[in-house]
Amino acid sequence: MTEPLLKIENLRIELALRSGQAPVIDDLSLELRPGETLSFVGESGCGKSMTALAIMGLLPEKVGSIAGGRILFDGRDMAQMNDAQLRSIRGNEISMIFQEPMTSLNPVYTVGEQIAEVLRRHKGMSKQAAWARAIELLDAVRIPNAKSRVSDYPHQMSGGQRQRVMIAIALACAPKILIADEPTTALDVTVQAQIFDLLRDLGRETGTAIILITHDMGAVSEMADRMVVMYAGRKAEDGPVAPVISHPRHPYTKGLISCVPHLLAKLTEQRPDLTEVPGIVPALASFGADACLFASRCDMADDKCRSSRPPEVAFGEQHSACWKADQL
C-alpha cells in the first residue's frame, strides 16, 4: 500500500456557540492516497464542508477552531502551520472548488486574468507565459473557442462554464489534492454529468487526488474509489465504494442509499412512495454526547445506542461506527 498523501488523525473541530463549545467534527480519522478519489457524503450540517475548510486552514475566524488531532499533508501537520506556509500550499498543492460557480469568480477580472494570476503567484510565470497557459487550461476544461473566451468576464459565461473555469483555476498548478465541495449542486442535471466526467478525466490525467463532497450517491458510485459517510460530525462508515453501497454496515448509509429514487420503466404503474430517512440531524449543542447521534432516527436503536458512543468496527476495508453493524 502506498503512503497516504493526506492523513487526518482524530481531528476535532469546535465551533464557539452561545452555549459553549460544540464539536462539529468529532474524532475524525481518514487517509487519502495519491491519485484516488475519496467521497464525503452525508446530509447538510454533518461537517463535510467543515472538514474541507479545516484542511485548507480556512475555518471561520474566531468561530471555528481545531481543538485536537492532526492533519498531515506529506508528513507535515497543517494544523500547526503558519499563514505563509499555508498560503504556499493553498491553490498550489491543495486547491478547492466551491458549490456556487455563479459567485466564486471575481466579477471585475476576466477569466483569463484569474487563471493567469494563480500561475504567476505560485509558479512565478511571466505575464505572457501565464496567459498562454490560461488558454491551454480553458481548452483542457473543454471550453470551446478558448482563445477568445479567455478575455470574457465571468458574467458572460453560463454556470457550467464558470465551474469549468473554477476547475481550470484549481488545476492550474497541478495540485496533489483537489477538494470539490458540492461542485454540481447549483448546476443543471445534464451539466452535472459533464462536470463529473471532466473531474474524473482530469484527475486521471494529472494524477490529482480528489476529495469529492456531495449529496449525489450516483456520482459517488461512478467517480469515487472510497467513500466516507459523515453523520453529525462523526464518521458513520467508510470503505471502498462498491462494498459500502452493496452492503452498508450502518443504518444511516443504508438510509441514504435507499433515498436515491429509481426511474420507473412504466409510468402508469402505481408509483411507490419516495423513501426518506425520518427526522433531522440533531442540534449542534448535542453533538458531543456520549451516544450514537443517529439513534433518534434509527429503527434499530436500543438503550445501548442511546447511552454510549459506538466504536468503529472493521469489516475488511470497511469500517462502521454502529453497535449493530454485524446484524446489518
Partner: peptide, 22 residues
C-alpha cells in the same frame, strides 16, 4: 464574506492583495 473571496483565500492570496486587488 462572498464566495470569490473565500476562493481567493483558498488559492493562497495574501491579505494585502486580498484587500487591494480582490
Amino acid at each position: 464574506e462572498l464566495e470569490y473571496v473565500t476562493a481567493a483565500r483558498a488559492g493562497g492570496v495574501k491579505n494585502g492583495r486580498l484587500i487591494f486587488s480582490v
